[in-house]
Structure formats: structure tokens, C-alpha cells
Write a protein that binds this DNA or RNA. Structure first.
Lengths: 225, 225, 225, 225
DNA sequence: CATGAATGAGTTTTCATTCAT
DNA sequence: TATGAATGAAAACTCATTCAT
């Protein structure tokens, strides 16, 4: 289940998911990833310096180079981390029924104007995605993340079709369209400050689902069955 | 009519299309804008240097500063130029009927794998859009451009509704959804190399239009009329 | 005529060989070469930094990079310059007779304890020569310089043989031995502080020449011819 | 007897030739010296880092500092070790007769193109000798080593003179000239890649010895005696 | 003994910007 | 206009050294 928004934030703003002592190396590396995230959100990829990252870090700048040979290495590790933060939550949901599950999925994209953390997180992903054009390694990681998300929607759709809830559409195509449309709305909201763009797109998709995707006599059929 | 794709390309790939001598200042500034465009596409915003721009230019770096005090000034002028290149073609179309006009509009977003110029142009816009977060001045320009595009789709829809071709939806909402979805697909295709993402989204929207937007008995009505 | 010792010193300590205004670029580059020379002598190759060079220079550090992209480029240019400084004087002499010419040549290697400039210059060459092991480009330049010097001695010997002054030895072999021996003595003197090592080698060679190289009855033969 | 070439090689290419357990401290320090030698040869003095040495070692960088406070301390110890490796073999020979002994001595300098170990070892000495200029402590050690070598040749010559084999030359002077010339040739060969330079110098010296140093009627005298 | 982590000073290099011509 | 030269601030990266364990 996609929760690009809050997943990351909670994870590294509150990296409390380590038990006991942990190993120092891992601690430090986690801290570096967190610092990188904060610095990226604050300064933007284009202006991000090692110093910016160090400033969000309670250790010295040199230590960044101790753990990652180059800035590029560090950022590549960060992309992996970022994808990991999101990916871990991809399948999380307790909802089983296809329709509410789809609604829940789409709902999670909505960013309220006040949720600056989620806005910020979304921006970070967009920034990295743009860099992907120039960095093949970034691209591979972000692309497979994107495809995994599309796949998640497709599965919900496939489940619904099988259950007779949704019309017999191509789950891949429609799934990609839904995910891509939500990502587009999020990009619009985050980059150009279009308040409520995600909410409007959520509503548009909900309407599309109601009007066009749901099997017309679903309620009847269901109760009939 | 949105033609972000080819509008820019023809314009700055061939920036020699002005008549007569013109005034030298303008010539030079146009050349700088063209060079900036090429440099941006080649290096990406994050790595763009004044030297990169000068290299795409047959003049010296100093001259850039003669025309624009700072790099930021230059880039701000570039954003304006960029929006202008697109905007000039916004209303261009010979199609009048709402349905084909909508189809034409959406069609123009499709980027074929081989069209690297259009891909490149789309990328430039995306790069700038991301920077908009950190540059309020960029944001204003790009946002109004975005809204103008949404408005164009909305008008097509409004025309169609008025003509009885389209169902009575909210033209703003649906227009924004359509435009945003296409932009999302374009971003996906360009940044992550998802070949045919724009084509698939175009098809999805076409299907949505046919199934959900067209007035059911349109053909009948039309021929009846 | 080889005068590795004083050639360089006079050249860049007193770069008065430019006419009138000259071009600034060349002036500056000459100044950089001079500064590099002084910094090299003071700090040694192993510890030489761009800052050290800048400190011997009346311009900024950045300017070094303006003229030479990297430290390595600068040092390669310096090696060329160094070889040039020496090479220009290679053929200079007014002496014609082979024996005095050979004596003059060997004599010029002698470094008196007080001649710190020449000592310093000799050291610079030795430092570069050691680096040649790790830098093929240095190696080529320094090797051809070495060979040119050997050739010069060989020519003196060949002249002397032809004139019947010297015994019929292989000029190349003996020339290389003489030059190499003098260079070895200079290295000994300069690196290990062996005062008078060059003078002692000069004397040894002079004795060798007198005892072994000169045609025994030269005077007689000459006049007889 | 000088065997700078092979002496070192056998010693540190195979630093495992100590019996039994030995004391650990010494073992480690020997290993550090060996690693330093290899690192020096590979990277050159100018680029030699503690990390380079540690890389040739199966232990950590920190351990180097445990045994030697500073890099300079380590290198000073290394110079001593180096001189020791050579010095131990200085007097080794079974030859008694002055002429063959001198020939043997000079012969040992010859480095065949394929003998990369000996080339490498010679280079290490040259690198250190250049540093001697800036490090008085290095200088003392290397200078006394040099003088000891000169002395060895001088003794051979003195023996030969006393035995009536050699002409009555100044053994110190001629010995220094011979040793210095061979070192010069070795430097030429090793730093500038002059293949066979040592062999040619050996031949030149051999000829000098035959022509100029041997007592003219030596063979007669000898057999007559 | 031995190490990984950490640091600070220093090194090369980059880059927007200025200036004299 | 137009440029090459020049600069200073800051960037990434290096490295000897220290320290807790």
C-alpha cells in the first residue's frame, strides 16, 4: 500500500525502530540518511551540499566521507533508503474488500495543506525522480518502486474484477492511470503550491470509480448472490 | 492548445527564425535563452553552470553577466521565456468540434520514444517546476501557465457540455484531472524512461471520454440533429 | 652546452627576456612557472601544494586553475618549461676545440658549496626525475632531455675523434658514461650534502680524459698533419 | 659488497623467514616495514599515505600509529631498516683477488630489464635519497650508507694497488667515482626507463679498468712471479 | 594488541562574479 | 558589446591522527 507521504516521515523523524544498543555503524548510517533527508527537504537537491547534510547531523563532515566515499555514493544509498522506507509499507492494510481498499489507497495520497511533513517528503521523491534522468542508478531504483506501486493498484483492481465488483477492465492499464494521475496531482500540489490538488484528484477518481468502474448492479448482484 | 512538446523544440532548436536584423540586444538575449535551454537539458538544473550555458553559446561567460546580473536573474528570465514559448501556441487549433478538439489536445501529449526533442523539452519544464518550490518567482510563472492549460481543457469541456456532446460534469474539475493526469504520465515517461506511458494515458483518457463523458445517445442525437 | 644549474635560475629569477608589453597571459604563465619553481625548491615535490605555489605568486590561487586545469597539468607544463630552460642553452658555447670544450662542459657541472641556487635547481630536476617513474608524461620529456645531453657530449667526443685529438672510442658510450657520472655526482652532492662531489668527479673525469682518452702524441700528430 | 638490488628483495618480498614464534612486537614491526616498502614502491614517496601502507598490511591503519607515533617516525624507522637490509650484505663475497672482486662488485649493479624487484628496490632508495634533502635524519643514515659503499670500493682498489695489480691511484677518489657512476646509471635506468644503462656503465667501467687502471704489464708480471 | 569510528586541518577544485580593456 | 583575466567563497574530498572499546 502506497504511503509515500507519511511512511518516510514517521520512519526517519522517529527512527525508534532499533532494538537495544544496535551497532554503531548502522546507527550512524541511519543518522546520515535522516540528516540527508532533512537537508534535501530544506535545501533542495540542486543546492544540497555535504555541509548541509553535516549541519543536520551531530557529527563531523568528514564522517560522511568515512561512511560514503563520495557524495554520489551517499545519495545513491539515500535513494535506496527512501525507496525502502516507502516500500516497507506498500502492502500494509487491513482492508480486504476491493472497493474500500482502492478508496483507502487513493485516499492516502491526499495531502492536506497543513501536512508539511508529507508535502516535504513527496517533494523529496520528486526531486530524486528528476535526477533520475541524469543518473541511471537512481532511475533503476525509482522506476522499480514506481512499477511496484502500479502493481499494487493493479492487484486491487484484479481482485475486484474477480470478485465481480469492478468492470472487466485491464487492471494494469487502469492501475497505472490511477497511480500516475495521483502522482501528477501530488506533484502539482507540492511543486506549484496547488492546494487541494490531491484532494480534487482523489474525488475525480472516486467519481470515475463510482460511475465507470463499478459493476452497475453491483449492490443488487451482491445481495442477490 | 497545449503543445509544450513541440512548441519549444521548434522555437529554440532553430532560434534563427526572426525576420531581418532585429536589434542586436534581443538577438543576443534570444541566443542566451536558447543556450540556456540546451544547457539545462544536457546537464540538468542541479548541475547547470554559467560555463555550461556559455559553452552552448558562441560567446563568453562574461557576456552572460553583461545581460543578466546574476545566474538567478538569467534563469528567471529563462522561465519566462519558456512559459512564453509554450503560451504562444496555447490557443492554436483549427478544430472546432469539442470531441475531436479534446482528442487532439490529449493527443499532443503523446511522446513517441524517438522524439528526443520533445522529451527533452518536457524534461526542462519538469526541472523548472521542481525548482519552483524554492523560488517563488518561478512558481508564479509556472503556476499560471499550469492553470492556463487547465483552463483550456475546461473550456473544451464546457463547449462540449453546452453543445450537448458531453455529460454535465464540472469542466474545471475534469479538465484539471485530465491535464494533470497527462502531465503525470509525461513526467513518468521522461524521468523514469517509461516508454509509451503518455500513449497509455492518452488511451485511458480516450476510453474514459467514450465511456463516461460522452452523452450516451450522442450519435443518435447528432444525426437526428 | 648543458648548464642545467644556472640556466633555469637566471631565467626565472630574472625573467627579463620579454620585449615591451608582452601579452598578459604569457606573463602570468611565466610567473606561475617561476612560482612553481620556487615553491618546488622550497617545499620539495612530495609536499608541494597549490597553495605553496600561490604563495610564491602575487595572484590568487584560483588563477592557477584558470591557467592550468589541474595540479598535474600545471606540473607537466612545468616539466616542459624546465626542460626548455635547460635545453635552450644546450648548444651555447664559444669554444670550438674538442678538448677545452669537453672540459668546459664537465666544468659546468661543478657546484660550489655556496651556490645554493644551482644546488636548488639541480634538486628540482632530480625531484622531477623521480616522479617520472610514476608519470609517463614526465618521463618522456625528461628522458629526451637526458638523451639530448648525452648526445651533446657524444658530439664533442666525435669531433675530437675526427680531429685526431681523442682516441677512437664509441662516442655514444663514453658520452653517456661521462654525463651519467656527472649527474650521479651532482645527485650525491645535492641530496646527501656531499660537498665537492661534483668537483671530485670533474677531476676524475679530467684525469680519465688526460690519461685514457687523449691520443698520446696528439700535439705531434696535429702538427705533423 | 653492495647488493642493494637483490638484498632488499629477498628480505622483504619474503618477510616470513624468521624462525619460530619470535616476539610479536618485532613480527608486527617487520611486517610494517615490509608493507611500507611495498607501498612506497607502488605509490612513490610523494603519494604515500598511511592507508597505502595499511593496505599492504593485513592490519588496520590505527595499528601503525600504535607502533609509530607519527608517519615521519615510521618512515625514519623505515630508512634505518632499508639501510640495514643493504648494509648486512655489504661485505659479503667469497672473491679475494682485487680484479675479479671489483668486477663482481660492479657487476652486481647491473639490472636486467626483467628484474622488476631489483628495479623497484633501487627506486625505493632513490626516493628516500631525494627526501633526504628535507629530512636531516634521513640524510645522515643514507649518507653514511653511501660512504660505506664508497669505502668498500676504495678498499678493493687499495688491495689491488698494494698487490701491484692496479695503478697507484687514489683509492678514495677512484672508488667514489666508480660507485657514483654506477649509482647514476642505475638512477637513469630506473627513473627514466633507460634499459641497459647499468649494463653499459658496467662495460664502460670495465674498459676503464682494463685500459687505465690495470698495471700495464700485469699479466706478464703475474706469471713471471 | 587491535580496531572502527571519529575528527580537524588542509588539499584540490569549482564557480559565480567582477574588472580592465 | 564583448572578452580574458582575475578573485574569493565554498565545494568535495583527503589524510594523519586520536580515542573508546
Amino acid at each position: 500500500m502506497d504511503t509515500e507521504g507519511d511512511a518516510g516521515n514517521s520512519t526517519e523523524d522517529d527512527p525508534g525502530n532499533r532494538a537495544g544498543e544496535g551497532d554503531a555503524a548502522s546507527d550512524t548510517q541511519d543518522a546520515i540518511m535522516g540528516a540527508t533527508y532533512r537537508a534535501l527537504c530544506e535545501h533542495g537537491y540542486a543546492n544540497l551540499t555535504m555541509q548541509d547534510i553535516a549541519d543536520e547531523f551531530d557529527k563531523s563532515r568528514s564522517l560522511l566521507h568515512y561512511h560514503y566515499d563520495t557524495k554520489e555514493d551517499l545519495l545513491l544509498a539515500f535513494v535506496e533508503q527512501m525507496v525502502g522506507w516507502i516500500g516497507d509499507r506498500l502492502a500494509e492494510t487491513e482492508t480486504e474488500d476491493p472497493l474500500p481498499r482502492l478508496e483507502e489507497y487513493v485516499d492516502r495520497f491526499v495531502i492536506e495543506p497543513g501536512e508539511s511533513d508529507r508535502q516535504t517528503f513527496a517533494l523529496a521523491i520528486i526531486e530524486l525522480r528528476v535526477q533520475a534522468v541524469h543518473h541511471p542508478q537512481f532511475r533503476e531504483k525509482l522506476r522499480s518502486h514506481y512499477e511496484r506501486n502500479v502493481e499494487t493498484v493493479a492487484e486491487i483492481l484484479a481482485d475486484g474484477i474477480e470478485a465481480g465488483v469492478f468492470r472487466d477492465v485491464d487492471p494494469e492499464r487502469v492501475g497505472e492511470a490511477i497511480y500516475t494521475a495521483m502522482v501528477g496531482a501530488r506533484t502539482y500540489q507540492v511543486t506549484l503550491g496547488a492546494e487541494d490538488a490531491t484532494r480534487r484528484m482523489r474525488d475525480a477518481i472516486a467519481e470515475f470509480v463510482a460511475t465507470d468502474l463499478l459493476v452497475a448492479d453491483r449492490d443488487v448482484a451482491e445481495y442477490a448472490g
